Lab assay of single mutants.
Amino acid sequence: MSDQEAKPSTEDLGDKKEGEYIKLKVIGQDSSEIHFKVKMTTHLKKLKESYCQRQGVPMNSLRFLFEGQRIADNHTPKELGMEEEDVIEVYQEQTGGHSTV
């Protein structure tokens, strides 16, 4: 019986991991920090939209990076291997420009 009891508790931990929340720091170019608590399985588009709304800027005017890689709207913290207190960097999107060649 103890084996049966242990097995469901392991499964519960697996389920808990799926719905687990982590805190992420979003740091802007001006070094301002906003902290977000997100589920591991939530699409990061929600975090990006919330950040842009707080900053009063359109979402397409900023780019969000985690460990140097651009974050897509459909990425989740779990897919990117994010952990508690990880940092997302935000930069002004640069458009235009010309070749110097």
Rank of each mutant, 00 (worst) to 15 (best):
31 S>V: 01
78 K>M: 13
37 K>S: 00
79 E>P: 00
33 E>T: 00
18 E>N: 11
66 F>V: 02
36 F>P: 04
30 D>G: 13
15 D>F: 10
61 S>L: 09
31 S>M: 00
42 T>Q: 14
66 F>H: 13
70 R>S: 14
31 S>K: 02
52 C>G: 03
94 Q>H: 08
6 A>K: 08
78 K>Q: 08
14 G>D: 12
60 N>S: 11
84 E>M: 00
33 E>W: 01
29 Q>K: 15
81 G>I: 04
43 H>A: 13
46 K>S: 06
82 M>G: 05
14 G>M: 08
16 K>Y: 09
67 E>R: 03
68 G>L: 05
72 A>S: 14
82 M>E: 04
90 V>L: 03
34 I>H: 05
73 D>A: 00
4 Q>H: 11
36 F>R: 04
45 K>H: 10
47 L>P: 03
53 Q>D: 14
59 M>E: 11
48 K>C: 00
21 Y>Q: 13
35 H>L: 09
16 K>R: 11
19 G>K: 13
8 P>L: 13
85 E>Q: 10
74 N>V: 11
34 I>K: 03
73 D>Y: 04
26 V>L: 15
69 Q>L: 08
20 E>F: 12
37 K>R: 14
40 M>Q: 03
75 H>Y: 07
16 K>M: 12
52 C>L: 02
7 K>M: 02
86 D>C: 12
45 K>R: 12
58 P>S: 12
4 Q>M: 09
23 K>D: 06
84 E>H: 04
39 K>Q: 09
78 K>T: 05
50 S>N: 00
64 F>D: 02
13 L>M: 08
76 T>D: 01
91 Y>K: 05
13 L>E: 08
87 V>E: 11
93 E>G: 08
87 V>K: 11
39 K>R: 11
96 G>D: 03
61 S>I: 05
92 Q>S: 13
33 E>R: 06
32 S>A: 13
77 P>K: 05
76 T>H: 00
29 Q>G: 01
50 S>Q: 15
52 C>V: 05
74 N>P: 05
94 Q>W: 10
21 Y>T: 14
71 I>W: 02
5 E>N: 09
77 P>S: 03
28 G>S: 15
86 D>H: 04
61 S>C: 08
13 L>K: 13
12 D>A: 13
51 Y>Q: 03
57 V>G: 04
38 V>Y: 08
62 L>H: 10
88 I>L: 07
27 I>V: 10
49 E>F: 07
92 Q>Y: 10
36 F>C: 03
89 E>K: 06
82 M>F: 02
65 L>W: 00
30 D>R: 09
23 K>V: 12
8 P>M: 02
51 Y>V: 06
22 I>P: 07
83 E>Q: 06
35 H>A: 07
70 R>W: 10
14 G>P: 01
72 A>R: 12
59 M>G: 06
8 P>N: 06
80 L>E: 02
66 F>C: 04
33 E>M: 05
25 K>V: 10
11 E>G: 15
77 P>N: 02
28 G>F: 00
46 K>Y: 11
29 Q>N: 15
36 F>I: 04
54 R>K: 06
43 H>K: 15
64 F>S: 03
63 R>F: 06
5 E>D: 13
57 V>M: 08
32 S>G: 12
31 S>H: 00
85 E>T: 07
22 I>Y: 00
38 V>I: 15
78 K>Y: 15
19 G>S: 11
6 A>T: 14
85 E>C: 14
39 K>I: 02
42 T>F: 01
94 Q>K: 07
79 E>F: 02
16 K>I: 11
45 K>W: 06
49 E>W: 00
33 E>H: 02
78 K>E: 13
75 H>R: 06
75 H>N: 13
4 Q>G: 11
48 K>F: 01
41 T>F: 00
79 E>A: 07
49 E>K: 08
41 T>V: 00
72 A>H: 09
13 L>N: 10
46 K>H: 12
2 S>E: 14
44 L>Y: 06
4 Q>Y: 09
39 K>Y: 07
32 S>P: 04
97 G>N: 00
47 L>Y: 04
52 C>W: 04
33 E>L: 06
12 D>P: 15
68 G>H: 00
20 E>N: 15
94 Q>T: 08
53 Q>R: 13
8 P>G: 08
91 Y>C: 07
43 H>Y: 09
7 K>C: 07
36 F>W: 00
96 G>K: 01
42 T>A: 09
45 K>T: 05
62 L>A: 00
77 P>E: 05
18 E>W: 12
74 N>D: 13
52 C>E: 03
48 K>G: 01
78 K>G: 15
52 C>D: 02
35 H>R: 12
4 Q>K: 09
73 D>V: 02
64 F>C: 04
26 V>S: 15
27 I>D: 03
90 V>E: 02
4 Q>R: 12
67 E>L: 09
63 R>W: 13
93 E>H: 12
31 S>P: 08
11 E>D: 10
27 I>G: 03
18 E>H: 11
27 I>T: 08
89 E>F: 10
7 K>V: 05
16 K>C: 08
86 D>W: 01
74 N>E: 10
51 Y>S: 01
2 S>T: 12
61 S>W: 07
83 E>N: 10
37 K>A: 13
7 K>H: 13
58 P>Q: 07
24 L>M: 07
91 Y>I: 00
8 P>Y: 12
23 K>F: 02
68 G>D: 05
64 F>K: 02
64 F>A: 05
11 E>M: 14
24 L>N: 03
95 T>I: 13
66 F>M: 04
31 S>G: 09
77 P>Q: 03
24 L>T: 08
86 D>Y: 07
3 D>E: 09
31 S>I: 08
32 S>C: 08
84 E>Y: 11
87 V>P: 02
73 D>R: 01
43 H>V: 12
94 Q>N: 05
12 D>S: 12
2 S>L: 12
76 T>M: 00
92 Q>C: 13
40 M>T: 13
18 E>R: 11
37 K>N: 05
90 V>D: 03
84 E>I: 00
29 Q>Y: 07
42 T>N: 02
47 L>C: 01
66 F>E: 04
60 N>C: 05
2 S>N: 11
81 G>F: 15
46 K>C: 03
18 E>I: 10
3 D>R: 09
82 M>L: 05
56 G>K: 01
60 N>P: 06
63 R>D: 00
91 Y>D: 06
31 S>L: 01
88 I>Y: 03
55 Q>D: 09
34 I>S: 05
12 D>L: 10
70 R>G: 12
62 L>G: 01
83 E>H: 06
18 E>P: 10
90 V>Q: 03
7 K>W: 08
33 E>A: 06
4 Q>F: 14
96 G>E: 02
41 T>M: 14
31 S>F: 15
72 A>L: 14
95 T>C: 09
56 G>A: 07
11 E>Q: 08
95 T>G: 09
26 V>K: 04
31 S>A: 15
2 S>C: 12
10 T>A: 12
20 E>D: 11
35 H>W: 13
96 G>T: 03
40 M>R: 09
56 G>F: 07
65 L>C: 04
80 L>D: 04
50 S>C: 15
40 M>A: 06
84 E>S: 13
33 E>G: 03
65 L>P: 04
11 E>N: 05
56 G>H: 15
29 Q>V: 02
81 G>E: 13
58 P>V: 00
7 K>L: 08
17 K>N: 12
73 D>Q: 06
69 Q>I: 03
45 K>S: 10
6 A>D: 13
88 I>P: 03
11 E>R: 10
67 E>Y: 06
75 H>V: 07
13 L>R: 13
34 I>L: 08
65 L>D: 01
76 T>F: 00
9 S>C: 11
25 K>M: 03
59 M>N: 11
39 K>S: 09
12 D>Y: 10
81 G>D: 06
72 A>P: 07
90 V>R: 01
13 L>C: 07
83 E>T: 15
54 R>F: 10
18 E>Y: 10
93 E>C: 09
45 K>F: 05
46 K>W: 10
30 D>C: 00
41 T>R: 04
51 Y>N: 05
8 P>S: 11
28 G>Q: 06
48 K>Y: 01
52 C>R: 05
42 T>L: 09
